[in-house]
């Protein structure tokens, strides 16, 4: 082996016979790890693991502090003969309990929650959720009539039950949708609104309604499920 080692020099060429190119065959059903542009990758240990440990510690410390400061509620021994007044479910069901005030139990207790679960499950399978662009990029005339019609039906439907907690957010969301119509003009908030897609509008409406119902049920319902201020919830007996 007396040969001198060959020196290597980088070769630049567009000929694939000289410089091999990486080719990826991507079928629609393949795994999604292939991207058009290479990204920067880092080692999971330590970069991700250390962040997970810190997050774990912060959450546990936060919970411990809250547990030290606030006591979990405990009322008197359960008495099947005496309904406390008001009688409330845990907070995440108070939106539902608030609905029960307006609608027959089969609607508020079975139909509406059932529809919500079905709607959540079908989200990734509905085409509209996969391809939707900004709301007003579609047929503007049809959208105008569509939004007006749907809002009108919702407002009339819920007004007959006097369920203003749904009517008002519906009107607000519809107004915001029309505010987004004048794209390109206005401040940064209006330009942001113009980019919102139809599924996002619907979800925002749902979250707004759920949040308002839950807040009313939690803070503004007193004895006999009557409307009260939060500081009057438990009147002196």
């Amino acid at each position: 082996m007396s040969q001198t080692p060959q020196t290597f020099a980088p070769v630049e060429s567009s000929d694939p016979m000289v410089v091999p190119k990486r080719v990826a065959m991507v079928r629609p059903d393949t795994r999604p790890t292939i991207r058009r542009r290479e990204e920067k990758w880092v080692m999971t240990f330590p970069h991700l693991i250390i962040r997970e440990v810190i997050m774990f510690m912060l959450v546990v410390i936060g919970l411990a502090v809250v547990a030290l400061l606030f006591n979990a509620p405990l009322e008197g021994l359960a008495n099947p003969l005496e309904t406390p007044n008001p009688s409330k479910a845990p907070w995440y069901f108070l939106g539902l309990q608030e609905l029960l005030h307006y609608f027959p139990p089969v609607v508020a207790g079975v139909v509406i929650p059932g529809l919500v679960v079905v709607a959540l499950v079908v989200i990734p399978y509905a085409r509209i959720n996969l391809v939707a662009g900004p709301l007003w990029s579609g047929d503007r005339k049809r959208l105008t009539t569509g939004i007006t019609a749907v809002t009108g039906v919702l407002v009339i439907l819920f007004s007959t039950f006097q369920c203003w907690a749904i009517v008002v957010p519906s009107l607000i969301v519809a107004a915001a949708m029309f505010l987004a119509r004048s794209e390109g003009s206005g401040g940064s908030f209006r330009r942001f609104l113009a980019l919102v897609t139809l599924p996002e509008w619907v979800m925002t409406w749902f979250v707004l309604v759920a949040a308002i119902l839950t807040i009313i049920g939690t803070f503004f319902r007193g004895p006999g499920w009557s409307l009260v201020w939060p500081w009057n919830m438990y009147p002196p007996a």
């Binding site: 003969l81 309904t83 007044n85 008001p86 009688s87 005030h101 207790g109 499920w225 009557s226």
Partner: peptide, 21 residues
């Protein structure tokens, strides 16, 4: 409605449910 125990109203004749009004 949902099985709470109703109570006679105080002040007026009638019965009221404490849970959902």
């Amino acid at each position: 409605h949902l099985g709470c125990i109703t109570r006679p109203m105080s002040g007026e004749p009638g019965i009221a449910c404490p849970c959902h009004g």
